[in-house]
Each structure stands twice: as structure tokens, then as C-alpha cells.
């Protein structure tokens, strides 16, 4: 892998289930091309995909900024949605505020944030009610 950092930016469309996942798919492809370890690629892809879906279903769309260095992959997903009133609850496996429509799409299992935590080395959630949410996901290239 080259020493220079690779930076990627994606816009995440609001409530568009058809294209949701495009950003994560793009990052997965880039990491594969750069020769990252399969385990790293999978963990980044899953965690980012969960965050991307959250931005679509809860955040009213947003943006993804990704930085890839020889040391780590940093994914920042931000939205200007309603924010998370109780982060502890949101981190509880099974807890969900998703609508029935979202459940019909196969999401709302209440595993989104717990999955992001599980597959990353570091995770930070900054959220303010009425302002938005920013999730930072970091996966180290080597364990």
C-alpha cells in the first residue's frame, strides 16, 4: 500500500433504499484495490453500511467521508437528522426506533450501532437532538 492517504467523499441520499449502500460498496472496492486484508475490508464494509443505512432511514440523508492510510481506515458519516436522544438505549442490541416501513425493508433489528461497535476498533458517536448525528468508525489495518 502506498504511503499517501486516500480520501473519499460520498453524498448519501435521503430515504433512497435503492442506492443505499453505494458508498460502502465503493469503499469496499477501493480497499480491495489497495490490497487491504480481507478481514479489514469486511469489517469496514459492514460497519460503514450500517451507518449509511442509519443515515438514510433516520438521518434524512447525509455524507460519508473516508480516509485510508497504511495504519487505519477512518469513516465519518454525518447527517442533519433528528439526533439520538438516549445513546445508551440506542447502543442496546435489539433497541430500535425504526418505522414499520423500514422494518419491511429488512432493517430496524436494533443491531445497527451494536454492529458498528463490534466490527470497529474505535467508534465515536456525537449527536445532538434537532441538530444531527456524526458517527466516526475506525478500523486499524493491523491488529
Amino acid at each position: 500500500m502506498s504511503e499517501a492517504a486516500v480520501k473519499l467523499h460520498y453524498d448519501i441520499d435521503a430515504e433512497d433504499f435503492t442506492t443505499a449502500g453505494e458508498a460502502s460498496s465503493g469503499v469496499k472496492k477501493t480497499l480491495t484495490r489497495l490490497g487491504a486484508e480481507p478481514d479489514v475490508i469486511k469489517r469496514v464494509a459492514i460497519a460503514m453500511y450500517e451507518a449509511e443505512i442509519n443515515a438514510v432511514i433516520h438521518g434524512g440523508g447525509g455524507a460519508a467521508d473516508v480516509e485510508i492510510t497504511p495504519e487505519k481506515v477512518t469513516v465519518v458519516i454525518s447527517d442533519q437528522g433528528p439526533g439520538i436522544p438516549d445513546l445508551d438505549k440506542a447502543m442496546t442490541p435489539g433497541w430500535s426506533t425504526a418505522t414499520n416501513l423500514v422494518r419491511e425493508m429488512g432493517f430496524g433489528a436494533g443491531m445497527g450501532l451494536p454492529n458498528m461497535k463490534r466490527y470497529t476498533d474505535e467508534m465515536y458517536v456525537e449527536s445532538e437532538v434537532g441538530v444531527g448525528t456524526k458517527v466516526t468508525l475506525i478500523v486499524n489495518m493491523k491488529r
Binding site: 443505499a20 460498496s25 429488512g106
Partner: peptide, 17 residues
Amino acid sequence: CTGLVNPQVVRTAEMMD
């Protein structure tokens, strides 16, 4: 095996290999 037939099933499969 799933009863869900939307694009997100394919996306999930992609992420999970």
C-alpha cells in the same frame, strides 16, 4: 435464505461476501 427481496439483501450479501 430470506423472504426479503429488495436491493438491500444483495447489498448485505455483498458486504458479507
